[in-house]
Design a protein around this nucleic acid. Structure first.
Length: 473
RNA sequence: CGGGGUGUGGCGCAGUUGAUAGCGCGCUCGGUUUGGGACCGAGAGGCCGAAGGUUUGAGUCCUUUCACCCCGACCA
């Protein structure tokens, strides 16, 4: 295993730190084709934990999993005009199959609205066929000009939920429910606080009526759109002719939603919680929650170490015993710190003699010497504390980097200094949003939940509502 | 799509005025070690991104080309 001794400091060089960390912690590496990512077992295990949690939440709300093809005939994608327009610059298109030029080009899915809704239109005839609540875990391809590991890769993994309802109200309930599920996941598992709100017209998903977003703050002050939930209105229903007869025998178009969370969110997780020593994984998403390090590889320590491991496994802690030879204790400590394992348990002669273990927290370095009989409850307790502490640190960062101003000069100054989120009023006019972006590189991230109106920070017009602005990843 | 950079053992790099490749880390084996990135010894591993050219001779010079990375504009 190759671990470079030097990881760039997070505070000096965020981008260098992040890239090196992704590779060194064995989360991912670059695929042979530009912008692609190989998810290594350690990184994939984190994604699997996300999947477990989210999948359970979906199913609890009646969502079923299914799978639709990766190839979308070009004609399908063309059916919804704004959807096509939004995605066409970043499509990967198959033109040759089996050595022959295809009669109709095949789009590699950038998202699955079109191919799924072609089926929905066949499936829905009666109000009794509704709602349709389907999710799929899959990959998608968007030919981005510039890529980062996790944060923006040419191919990414995600889930996309797609529902169809008899009424707009019901669709909106689902849109909000999905965002609620994401918010809970981010808070309870990712330990990532964020702002939830509606996107401006220009930032709304191509083909949607409205987009809700979960916006998190990255170190360096940029915002990361971490999950979205769309109210598609009847846009796709009209384009794909998805209609049904209601209880009064009247023909109606369905109301739809779609919502997704991708491996991008893991990039946010790594970036926010990591420190100069490497990753700091929240226990909920740590493939290994406790790493047990015998001070020596001697047999007499091993049986005790095995016993400690068994106790943890029995109490459902994801524990691993590092028995690899040829690595000194110091090396192993650094290795597991880099990989962000929340707890390190050291076992040596002293611990064995006293029937104790030494437990060190990754998040703050605090040491506890614990009686082995109290091991499980102590570990469980510490894991909770670490989870809470990471959330607390992240929320402190979010709050202390959220500003509010009514003065455009302040706004500009802030965006060129420490960045972060700025709450400011905006009239809703595209021209103002676009000028602000040109002059500060900041865009609207989402509407705040404030109902107080003010003057537009750019044009000064009254009755402007409050928005979060930030530079975006 | 613009700007910058880099391609030489697995990784990071050196290679001067051209003379058929070297260092560190890692890896393998043996031994000594082990409470914060151990040490000694012996090994394995590279036609220098690709193609063409100049030359007695090219990692090095020339031409073309490909790929990737970083920074911007576009985006989950």
């Amino acid at each position: 295993m190759a671990y470079d001794k030097q990881l760039p400091k997070k505070s000096d060089d965020i981008s260098g730190w992040y890239n090196a960390l992704m590779l060194q912690a064995e989360l991912a590496e670059y695929g042979p084709a530009k912008g692609t990512m190989i998810l290594r077992p350690y990184g994939y295990a984190i994604w699997e934990l996300v999947q477990q949690k989210l999948d359970a939440a979906f199913k609890a709300n009646g969502v079923e999993n299914a799978y639709f093809p990766i190839f979308i005939p070009e004609s399908l994608l063309q059916k919804e005009a704004s959807h096509l327009e939004g995605f066409s610059p970043e499509l990967a298109i198959v033109t040759i199959g089996g050595g022959e030029v295809l009669q109709e080009k095949l789009i590699i899915r950038p998202t699955s609205e079109t191919i799924m809704y072609a089926s929905y239109s066949k499936w829905v005839k009666s109000w009794r066929d509704l709602p349709i609540m389907i999710n799929q875990w899959n990959n998608a391809v968007r030919w981005e000009k510039r890529t980062y590991l996790f944060l923006r890769t040419t191919e990414f993994l995600w889930q996309e939920g797609h529902t169809a309802h008899a009424t707009h109200d019901e669709a909106i309930v689902t849109q909000k429910w999905a965002m609620g599920a994401y918010a809970q996941l981010f808070r309870d598992q990712y330990a990532l606080p964020g702002y939830i709100g509606t996107k401006s017209a220009t930032e709304t998903f191509a083909g949607a009526s409205s987009t809700m977003t979960y916006e998190t703050l990255m170190p360096g002050g940029k915002a990361l759109q971490s999950a979205t939930s769309h109210d598609l209105g009847q846009n796709f229903a009209h384009a794909f002719d998805i209609k049904f007869q209601d209880k009064n025998s009247k023909t109606e178009f369905v109301w739809q939603t779609s919502w997704g969370l991708s491996t991008r969110s893991l990039g946010g997780l790594f970036m926010v919680h990591g420190d100069d020593k490497g990753l700091r994984l929240p226990p909920e998403l740590a493939p290994i929650q406790a790493i047990i390090l015998p001070i020596r590889a001697d047999d007499k320590f091993m049986s005790y170490a095995d016993q400690v491991k068994s106790r943890l496994i029995d109490s459902k802690v994801r524990a691993k015993l590092d028995t690899r030879d040829g690595e000194s204790l110091g090396f192993k400590i650094n290795k597991w710190e880099l990989k962000g394992v929340p707890l390190r348990i050291e076992i040596g002669a002293k611990e064995q003699a006293d029937n104790k273990v030494k437990i060190v927290r990754r998040d703050n370095g605090k040491i506890a010497i614990v009686d082995v009989d109290k091991l499980s409850e102590t570990v469980e307790n510490l894991l909770k504390q670490i989870q809470d502490n990471l959330y607390k640190q992240a929320i402190d960062a979010l709050e202390s980097n959220t500003y509010s101003t009514a003065d455009y000069a302040d706004f500009k100054q802030q965006m060129s200094d420490s960045k972060g989120f700025i709450k400011a009023n905006w009239c809703g006019n595209n021209a103002c949003e676009s000028m602000i972006k040109q002059e500060t590189t900041a865009t609207t991230r989402c509407k705040t939940d404030s109902t107080v109106e003010g003057n537009c920070i750019y044009c000064g017009k009254p009755h402007a509502s409050e928005w979060y602005f930030a530079q975006s990843y």
